[in-house]
Write a protein that binds this DNA or RNA. Structure first.
Lengths: 224, 224
DNA sequence: TTATAGCTAAAATGAACGTATGAATCATGA
DNA sequence: TCATGATTCATACGTTCATTTTAGCTATAA
């Protein structure tokens, strides 16, 4: 085989990088740490990916391509079944956020590790990764936003965009799972294994998101 | 005066560090960048604060001491007026998150810059800063959690903790304000100045948070 | 077998990092 | 006025960083 060793090295680097970027952030993770954990030579990253930044992009691309394609597939499916009629908001929210959390239960897709890395990186704005993620998400966001506009014709579009934003925040922060304040709240949550907790997280999060999405519209103070 | 030059240098360093940590993260901000922006000598940080890590802590302490004291004061006030009866959830949520966002409108308290730094750092878990923030928030979180338990006696405590967590996420992510996906959503938001946007953000966020907090309880799939 | 391309190994490069040092400068109290 | 302690300054130190280089290894194709 002409690439047996090579693909193995690439995958090992990507797996190690995913875990380490999640744990220590991009700047906090050195090439020596990555190649050490992957048990490959220091130069292998630059040979296979070109640079550290390109490696980070590849870590994301490996998972996001699948995730966002799946999200589009789900939405296509929903819209096909609805035959032109507006979708229920709960279905749209589940298509976007449910698909994400369900991916985390599939270890072959990176499991919770990638989920945490994603949540963390969405609030960590290195310029080059922002541009990359924006492009990677462009189509999906556009489609889901449009679906929400259609599903909630009486709600001002600006309000929907804001609430979509809030939902993204609640989800990202939750899946980052390493927030500083978790130490404080003496976590009387069930100590089941990660998959069990993930099972119950999805309904919990979904209730919260839908409650927020359908909340009464805010009233602004007069500042004319 | 025995400290004129000194306090000025300290403040300039803290201001510069606050802005730069916000923009580039902790690891991404070098001492040379900080001291350059503050127009002080490179050695000044180590002289006045001891180390880069201690500087970061001081950046937070300067704002958080006031913020969390104010949160406690507000809660004390509410509970005193209620005279032992449970508080309305909206008042509790406003006491916690409203106080935070109102602080951002006071430029003397750091304004949006500190708000963004806080939002960003809450998901950026350097071990030492996690421990510091956990300690800094300990009392406030405990008090507000207890108030919510009392205000919502029919809701399981675990559920309240989760939803408090989701609220923290939505808020942190929003105030970080630098999330990667903002580029995507062609932001048809009013182009008013920062304070105007902040004026309307608070009611918007509050509606969302309360909607989520009061949402119907989730139903879990049977996995017995 | 030999040439070639794909890949790995080990070492070196130059830049940037946080921190430490000792001299210079300043304000202050006797 | 002058000695003193606080602060600022320029500079150097020892690491660690991402990346590059050069040589060597392995497997396929002619």
């Amino acid at each position: 085989m002409t690439e047996g060793r090579s693909t193995d090295t690439r995958e090992r680097i990507l797996d190690a990088a995913e875990t380490l970027f999640m744990a220590h952030g991009y700047d906090g993770t050195s090439m020596r740490l990555i190649t050490g954990a992957a048990e490959v030579n220091l130069a292998a990253v630059n040979y296979h990916f070109g640079s550290k930044g390109a490696l980070l992009q590849e870590v994301f691309r490996r998972r996001l391509d699948w995730l966002n394609a799946e999200r589009l597939r789900v939405l296509d499916d929903l819209e096909r079944k609805a035959g032109g009629k507006p979708l229920k908001p709960s279905l749209i929210v589940d298509g976007y956020f449910g698909t994400l959390l369900r991916m985390a239960q599939d270890e072959a897709c990176g499991g919770v590790t990638f989920l945490r890395l994603l949540g963390r990186t969405l609030t960590e704005p290195s310029d080059f990764i922002r541009a990359f993620l924006a492009n990677e998400y462009k189509e999906v966001i556009e489609r889901y936003k449009a679906a929400l506009f259609k599903a909630l014709p009486d709600v001002p579009k600006a309000e929907i965009v804001w609430r979509f934003h809030f939902m993204l925040g609640a989800t990202s922060y939750t899946i980052a799972g390493t927030d500083a304040l978790r130490l404080v709240t003496d976590w009387q949550i069930e100590d089941a294994d990660a998959n069990d907790r993930l099972d119950r997280l999805l309904p919990r999060l979904m209730s919260f998101l839908l409650g927020g999405l359908r909340a009464p519209l805010p009233e602004f103070p007069d500042n004319a």
